[in-house]
Amino acid sequence: MTLTFYDCSTAPSPRRAKIALLEKGLDFDTIEIDLRSGEQMGEAFRAINPQCTVPALKLDDGTVLTDNHGILAWLEAAHPEPPLLGTTPIEKADVMSWVTRCEFEGLLAVAEVVRNFAPQMKGRALTGPVDFDQIPALVERGIKRIAAFWDVLEERLDDREYVAGDHFSAADITALVAVDFSKVARQRPGEDKTNIWRWREAMNARESVAATNFA
């Protein structure tokens, strides 16, 4: 099977899918899409993913999966080991619950700050083919949301090795990408968030994480 992964190594969203691919031990070709130059908006990439976003994963039959959730669902079905969405019904529910929380309360809160503040995001406050203006007031709200999420994650990781279940999962992937991406928003967890930093340091022992760490 030949897989082609459309990536941007400096962006948080494709990093989630790339970690999952590496955890599954799959071989894949990588094509870098230069988001800074707007390559994702060009006709060549639109033909691959009309949503103008990365990640995208092209399968050997030509099917293109165009978001993290679709890619992860395919990976779990086609390559179930090691599981990233849990094994038992309860664990699967727990993992998905925390994937959702880490994405919406953490990762998207960070994106809210970055995309409504960064000058290079002017007119591009949301990903996708439609241009949206920045809303400066959302920066303040995003900062508050991030702080609230750090409290939630800190409490969750008290006496826990992983965010959900007893094994590394998609919940850990989403949470660690949120923690790392928060550096761009200048809203990293404080030194008092000792559980978060203990967990984040432990994540570096995984080859998939170390290989995709932001510079």
Rank of each mutant, 00 (worst) to 15 (best):
Q120H: 10
M121K: 14
K122Q: 13
K122V: 12
G123C: 01
G123T: 12
R124M: 12
A125Y: 08
A125W: 09
A125S: 14
L126T: 12
T127D: 09
G128K: 07
G128S: 03
P129L: 03
V130H: 11
V130L: 06
D131N: 14
F132S: 09
Q134M: 03
Q134T: 06
I135H: 11
I135T: 07
P136R: 01
P136D: 10
A137L: 08
A137S: 12
L138R: 12
L138D: 03
V139P: 01
V139S: 02
E140V: 13
R141G: 08
R141K: 12
R141I: 09
G142N: 02
G142P: 04
G142L: 00
G142D: 05
K144G: 07
I146K: 06
A147D: 15
W150D: 00
D151C: 03
V152M: 13
E154Q: 07
E154G: 11
E155R: 02
E155M: 05
E155D: 15
R156K: 11
R156P: 01
L157G: 02
L157K: 07
L157P: 04
D158M: 04
D158W: 00
D158S: 10
D158F: 08
D159W: 10
R160M: 08
R160L: 05
E161K: 15
Y162F: 15
Y162M: 03
V163S: 00
V163R: 04
A164L: 08
A164I: 11
H167K: 13
H167W: 09
F168W: 05
S169H: 06
S169Y: 04
A170R: 00
A171K: 09
A171Q: 01
D172T: 01
D172K: 09
T174K: 11
T174C: 05
T174G: 02
A175R: 06
A175Y: 02
L176G: 01
A178D: 00
A178K: 06
D180E: 14
D180W: 14
F181V: 12
F181D: 09
F181W: 15
S182W: 08
K183C: 02
K183M: 13
K183P: 03
K183N: 08
V184S: 07
A185R: 10
R186W: 13
R186V: 15
R186P: 01
Q187P: 05
Q187K: 14
Q187G: 11
Q187S: 14
R188N: 08
R188F: 04
P189E: 03
G190T: 10
G190E: 02
G190L: 05
E191A: 14
E191I: 07
E191P: 02
E191S: 10
D192S: 14
D192W: 05
K193G: 11
T194G: 03
N195W: 09
W197L: 09
R198K: 13
R198H: 08
W199L: 10
W199M: 09
W199T: 10
R200T: 00
E201C: 06
M203E: 02
M203I: 04
N204S: 15
N204T: 15
N204V: 13
